[in-house]
Design a protein around this nucleic acid. Sequence first.
DNA 1: TATGAATGAGGGTTCATTCAT
DNA 2: TATGAATGAACCCTCATTCAT
Lengths: 205, 205, 205, 205
Amino acid sequence: MARKPADQSVNQQDILIAAADVLQRNGYEATTMKDIAAEVNLTAASLYHHFKNKDALLLAVLEAGLELVISRLEPIMRSDKSCDQQLREMIGVHIISLTENTAVGAAMVFEIRSLMASNGSGSAAEVTRRKKFFARRDYFENLYRQVIQKGVEQRIFRAVDVPIFAKTLLGAHNWVSVWYKPDGRLNGQQIATMMADTFLQALKF
Amino acid sequence: MARKPADQSVNQQDILIAAADVLQRNGYEATTMKDIAAEVNLTAASLYHHFKNKDALLLAVLEAGLELVISRLEPIMRSDKSCDQQLREMIGVHIISLTENTAVGAAMVFEIRSLMASNGSGSAAEVTRRKKFFARRDYFENLYRQVIQKGVEQRIFRAVDVPIFAKTLLGAHNWVSVWYKPDGRLNGQQIATMMADTFLQALKF
Amino acid sequence: MARKPADQSVNQQDILIAAADVLQRNGYEATTMKDIAAEVNLTAASLYHHFKNKDALLLAVLEAGLELVISRLEPIMRSDKSCDQQLREMIGVHIISLTENTAVGAAMVFEIRSLMASNGSGSAAEVTRRKKFFARRDYFENLYRQVIQKGVEQRIFRAVDVPIFAKTLLGAHNWVSVWYKPDGRLNGQQIATMMADTFLQALKF
Amino acid sequence: MARKPADQSVNQQDILIAAADVLQRNGYEATTMKDIAAEVNLTAASLYHHFKNKDALLLAVLEAGLELVISRLEPIMRSDKSCDQQLREMIGVHIISLTENTAVGAAMVFEIRSLMASNGSGSAAEVTRRKKFFARRDYFENLYRQVIQKGVEQRIFRAVDVPIFAKTLLGAHNWVSVWYKPDGRLNGQQIATMMADTFLQALKF
DNA sequence: TATGAATGAGGGTTCATTCAT
DNA sequence: TATGAATGAACCCTCATTCAT
């Protein structure tokens, strides 16, 4: 009544990666636990040994993706390079992250709403964790705002509305994970360079 | 899009508007026929007198939104203004459309995937209609590409990769319908101006 | 994709009766919606047109059973007969109700705990309804307490601890629906008479 | 039932006690192996080293409870006291057992149905064991019948229908384990006395 | 047109149970 | 003995869709 799998057991990381992939392809609502499980050769029921429920899995996927990008952005922020150089590098690693791992990016674009829909429900711990995620998301966006703000103050960038500019930039980035195809005309690095050029140019006086 | 029939019964337009609204709030998968029906004081069953099925309804919503924007973009394209002026105005009406009618915009951002997921299924007529929609979507994106391309050729814009720049611009626009709040700090017109500034600046030599 | 049933549609009453029957046989947890549906030639899904969920159905069953008994008890209470006569008649109709409809009685015995288990969950309306049910249950028990109390005060009954005596009596009654078999040695009327004798005797000086 | 092994590992007794407790609180179907395991700091899987399956565990709980009561009832039966005194004492120890160990009592009230539901299934050994349990249950009820019968024959009790009177008495008793609260107005001894009074009175001429 | 009732399909989730470690 | 991981089975419930009225 309980068969053993041929290979060894999967870990949460494997599941997260698979889930991100499926989620990106199908979207949260259209993705079934079975779909995700199949991707790692498990039964849907088995997923519940690793994640409390579908919401928790989604949240874990988003968290992982967000933390990955943050972990790559922060060192750039902490460097003593000039603002324009910092922004250029940030856009670079961000786009590269997105193209290397479309799953994470697309999940973030599309599924935040699903996450918000589940707001209010769940245990206190779940609510807390969700709040923390949104706080991290704001922190992430703030990294961009900070460097833009700093550049404006240092007269390196022209005087733009920082929140709007950040949203503009992030929207453009997010969309990459929707249209990017690994076998397309341009690779991630090339796209990153172009987009960095675009936004740096947009900030010139 | 604003004609008012004499009688009081709901028509397809009413349903489309309501559907777009609900779809934006909840997303395609999370939106039930009952939800949409409730918005126009009908039962789910009654919706089937107006639309063949949920997919057809979604498609109709997307079509309406897309055609609205196209209908506002084409006159600008056909004018004899300079490329930069054309692009500025296009961005303007696009953003305004999005902020005036978040429903349509968000539907376009989020639900294209759902539509693609249903690809291959359905009658020949449905498949044809879906194909036509995607063709229109490409046409829409092409409007942007054309004006950018023309500007580049006329040395009014710097030499950018046109497809990538168009995607960048569209990504930024689409994202507006996600974060825009009618009671926010800035209205649609202000946002439109700022984003136009950004992208026009980005195209300067 | 949606077949019609051969016979005409069922109403809530039919479902309640069927549900009470199945619930009694299997217990709440062991009873599936499918089981109940099958009893009225419906699909499980169809039940949800009549009751919001399994809990609501259970509650409706219990309510119906309780109200039935209360409706038979109250006229006796309101009569101007002597306490001992009143109590005798109450025991009579109660036992008869139980043997005529073991389902309801057993459900009441066994499933109150299930109902309590679901306490706190659900919408405010559900909680309210549940509270009201428990209030009615208390009212029901109070009918017995009142007549006993009155009898004690009028020196018709010996001085017993009223709450304990009522519990004793109710426990004996409830258990009837567990062991009573329609084709047993004695019918409901006979059992009722014997139990009335027992408890009236127990109250003599 | 209260021996304590030197080591600290759990033994079947510990599990039985814990299981009885959880079963009483939640009922058989609503109680999970995990629930029971948690009560003794084990995992569900570990329980299977002690009991073949959930049914076996339930049966063991019921057996233990039943045997406990029987073991306390038999000495009274074997004494040469008068019938009325014997019955009084039997009611006393029975109620006390119930209030001291609600778990066992409630399990007996509520879970017999679950046990019967599993009838027919299982190995021959299991069926045998189940049959034996039911035989013991009948034996237990017979203890009451015997003393009542004897009393009637000796003209100590009035002529009642013995089976019905026994059911009446047992129903009242079983119900105690449902409503008894350790911190209630009366303790087990007081309740026992009152109920003994009631039933002895009911048997008077 | 509108709808109440019904249903097949399926999704999330739970749970008893197994087995390798 | 103990357990983590896994699973088949089943359950509750939802939903798009149909059809008689």
